[in-house]
């Protein structure tokens, strides 16, 4: 059935989900095999399958959307889904922010003997004083320096904030049916996104080479890289999403009232932006 009588579009049976499952399975399983000492080939196959699925699935959706099959109610389903999906992402980051909070407020002071942990300190780590940043009483990974907030991170903050503005500007353009404003705004946003990623890569290289700040630098390194790393990954994904929107805009997709795909990417972008502000404050600034 292609179309319910009530107008809510119900898709035909589709091969894409099962292909997606196989792709995920091969990718994760293949990575597992790699960690077990085997080659990465299974993982690459899985990734290729996933990419194939993404093209196919989204391609179908785009065709359906451009074909005018989606009514307002379908549109609302998409909106809700994207919103709740972003909420789930927020909770994923919350786990890591929670870990950071717990380590800074509880665990590390306890290692230094705070609270009812005097004996933890006296018996196990008489030498250790609690500080942040720390790589623990074992000085895991050796001495390191931290990344100051007011260098690249501050620039990156500006970049992301600006990109939030450009994407909104692009949206205005779309709503006014001003294609060139849409395309220019999107282009700027994507460019700023990749610039951000570039700066972050530079920052990582600097941290590894000059500051001896590594993923293995105790719990500071763990929280620093996991939080900023996952954020960076999300920026990359968001930028790719926006890039797709850019191409679609150039192909003449979207109308001033029907362009949820664009909005979804923009929401995602704002979410990435907000997470960055949290990072900037709790990871870089308040050390």
């Amino acid at each position: 059935m292609s179309q319910a009588a009530g107008g809510y579009y119900l898709p035909e049976p589709s091969k894409w989900p099962i292909i997606g499952s196989i792709g995920l399975f091969l990718m994760t399983g293949g990575f597992g095999l790699y960690l077990m000492g085997m080659s990465m080939i299974t993982m690459y196959i899985g990734m290729a399958v996933l990419v194939y699925m993404l093209f196919g699935w989204f391609g179908t959706v785009i065709k359906e959307s451009e074909g005018g099959l989606y009514n307002d109610q379908v549109d609302m389903s998409f909106r809700m889904s994207m919103g709740w999906f972003i909420f789930s992402e927020v909770m994923f980051f919350a786990a890591f922010f929670g870990a950071l909070y717990y380590i800074r407020v509880f665990a590390d002071p306890w290692l230094g003997g705070a609270g009812n942990n005097l004996m933890t300190h006296d018996w196990l780590y008489p030498e250790y004083t609690s500080t942040w940043p720390t790589n623990g009483p074992g000085n895991v990974g050796g001495d390191f320096q931290t990344m100051g907030a007011w260098g690249i991170p501050a620039i990156n903050t500006l970049i992301l904030l600006t990109s939030g503005a450009t994407v909104t500007w692009a949206h205005w353009g779309l709503k006014k049916d001003n294609r060139s404003q849409l395309i220019l705004g999107l282009f700027l946003t994507v460019a700023l996104g990749f610039l951000f990623v570039g700066f972050q890569a530079y920052e990582y290289i600097h941290a590894y080479n000059d500051l001896n700040l590594k993923l293995t630098s105790g719990v500071y390194g763990s929280t620093f890289y996991m939080l900023t790393g996952f954020h960076g990954l999300h920026v990359t994904i968001g930028a790719i999403m926006l890039l797709v929107m850019l191409f679609r805009s150039m192909k003449g997709h979207f109308t001033h009232e029907n362009h949820f795909a664009f909005e979804a990417a923009a929401w995602y972008w704002h979410f990435v932006d907000v997470v960055w502000l949290g990072l900037f404050i709790f990871v870089y600034w308040l050390v």
Partner: peptide, 25 residues
């Protein structure tokens, strides 16, 4: 998903979320 990810990196990539020596717990 977050907590199993921390387990994964602790075991295979040398993070210290759950290891007191590195400041974790």
């Amino acid at each position: 998903a977050g907590v199993v990810t921390m387990m994964l990196t602790d075991k295979y990539f040398g993070t210290s979320f759950f290891d007191a020596a590195g400041g974790g717990d």
